[in-house]
Amino acid sequence: QVNIAPGSLDKALNQYAAHSGFTLSVDASLTRGKQSNGLHGDYDVESGLQQLLDGSGLQVKPLGNNSWTLEP
């Protein structure tokens, strides 16, 4: 069960990665100043990332080996 409060997208993504045990490689300029609506409930990694990114204009991309990145 994930419980991440709304706020900074950077912070939300870092909390989610730490909670879910995956690696997220992101260029900080992509997420700077963006906000997230947070995340509450049970999600697989990709669904949770998509939910956190909702409205940010960013997309999640798998890199393999439980690693992910973001792209515009």
Score class of each variant (00 low, 15 high):
Q1P: 13
Q1R: 14
V2K: 01
N3F: 14
N3E: 09
N3Y: 15
I4F: 03
I4L: 04
A5P: 14
P6M: 07
P6V: 05
G7L: 03
G7H: 04
S8C: 14
S8M: 09
L9E: 04
L9V: 04
D10N: 07
D10R: 10
K11W: 15
K11N: 13
K11G: 09
K11I: 12
A12I: 09
A12W: 04
A12V: 15
L13M: 04
L13R: 02
L13V: 03
L13N: 01
N14A: 15
Q15L: 12
Q15K: 07
Q15E: 14
Q15S: 09
Q15D: 13
A17F: 05
A17H: 03
A17L: 06
A18P: 00
H19S: 11
H19W: 14
H19I: 15
H19L: 15
S20K: 15
S20G: 12
S20Q: 13
G21P: 00
G21F: 06
F22N: 01
T23N: 11
T23G: 06
T23E: 09
T23I: 12
L24S: 02
V26S: 06
V26W: 15
V26E: 02
V26C: 11
D27N: 09
D27W: 07
D27Q: 07
D27H: 08
A28V: 10
S29Q: 10
S29T: 12
S29G: 09
L30C: 11
L30M: 08
L30Q: 03
L30K: 00
T31G: 03
T31C: 09
R32P: 03
G33V: 02
G33Q: 04
G33W: 07
G33E: 06
G33F: 07
K34L: 12
K34P: 05
K34A: 04
S36P: 02
S36H: 05
S36W: 05
N37I: 09
N37M: 12
N37H: 10
G38M: 03
G38Y: 04
G38V: 00
G38Q: 03
L39W: 03
L39A: 04
H40F: 13
H40A: 11
H40N: 12
H40Y: 13
G41K: 04
G41T: 02
D42L: 15
Y43D: 02
Y43S: 01
Y43P: 04
Y43I: 05
D44P: 07
D44Q: 06
V45D: 03
V45K: 04
V45M: 06
V45Y: 06
E46W: 15
E46T: 09
S47L: 08
G48T: 04
G48P: 01
L49P: 01
L49M: 07
L49S: 00
Q50W: 12
Q51M: 13
L52P: 00
L52V: 02
L52C: 04
L52D: 00
L53F: 03
L53E: 00
D54T: 13
D54Q: 15
G55K: 06
G55R: 06
S56P: 01
S56K: 04
S56I: 07
G57H: 05
L58V: 03
L58P: 01
Q59E: 08
Q59H: 12
Q59I: 14
Q59D: 08
V60C: 14
V60W: 08
V60E: 03
K61F: 08
K61H: 07
P62K: 14
P62E: 08
L63W: 06
L63F: 07
L63G: 07
L63I: 10
G64N: 06
N65T: 08
N65R: 08
N65C: 10
N65W: 08
N66V: 00
W68D: 00
W68Q: 00
T69V: 12
T69N: 04
L70N: 01
L70Y: 02
E71D: 05
E71V: 15
E71P: 01
P72F: 10
P72N: 07
P72R: 10
P72I: 12
